[in-house]
């Protein structure tokens, strides 16, 4: 356990020096694989210095597509959708005012709450975090997620009146 944590923290510290957002996205992925992938993301960085940012993002994207399980991709798409819906609601609130306020709270908080729950599901089902939740199977996590979401929807629909 301790050894794993060390293994994780080391590569995380190294990319942090590059001060880009990309390494932090990669960091959780690295320990799932063998130590071998670590050089893989490290190499594009050296290339990026020469080949530009486009190369960095292209590599990230390729790596994400190849190494991410399909369910996690689905989760990320849903998260993106929720961010979009939340941003639209907030934009509308800024432009058109917050009357009726309970409707705004209910709609916006519903989306944010769904986002939080989905993030939780993503954390619990990611293989990399398996060790943190030894008793939570993906099925159990999904069931929790559905129940909590239904409670959230029930509350929001009531509150919007």
């Amino acid at each position: 356990m301790a050894g794993k944590k060390n293994a994780r923290s080391e590569p995380a510290a190294a990319p942090a020096t590059t001060a880009t957002s990309t390494p932090s996205a990669k960091a959780p992925l690295t320990p799932t694989k063998n130590p071998i992938p670590i050089p893989t993301p490290a190499q594009p960085k050296a290339v990026a210095a020469q080949g530009g940012w486009a190369q960095v993002f292209q590599n990230l994207y390729d790596y994400y597509l190849s190494e991410t399980p399909q369910r996690t991709k689905l989760l990320d798409v849903f998260l993106l959708f929720l961010v979009l819906v939340g941003a639209l609601q907030f934009l509308y609130c800024i432009l058109a005012g917050n009357y009726p306020f309970n409707a705004f709270l209910s709609g916006f908080c519903g989306t944010v709450g769904q986002f939080v729950l989905t993030i939780s599901l993503r954390i619990q089902t990611t293989e990399a975090n398996k060790a943190d939740f030894p008793k939570v199977s993906p099925e159990r996590a999904f069931a929790d997620y559905v129940v909590c979401s239904l409670i959230l929807h029930f509350f929001c629909v009531n509150f919007i009146n």
């Binding site: 849903f78 959708f81 929720l82 819906v85 939340g86 639209l88 609601q89 509308y92 058109a96 005012g97 009357y99 009726p100 309970n102 409707a103 705004f104 209910s106 709609g107 916006f108 519903g110 989306t111 769904q114 979401s149 929807h153 929001c156 629909v157 919007i160 009146n161």
Partner: peptide
């Protein structure tokens, strides 16, 4: 809320969240 037209975007926000879910 559904009587107040100003609330319709937020109602549809909930709708989008639920159907997306």
């Amino acid at each position: 809320s559904f009587v107040i037209s100003g609330a319709w975007p937020w109602i549809s926000g909930i709708g989008a969240t639920v159907s997306g879910f």
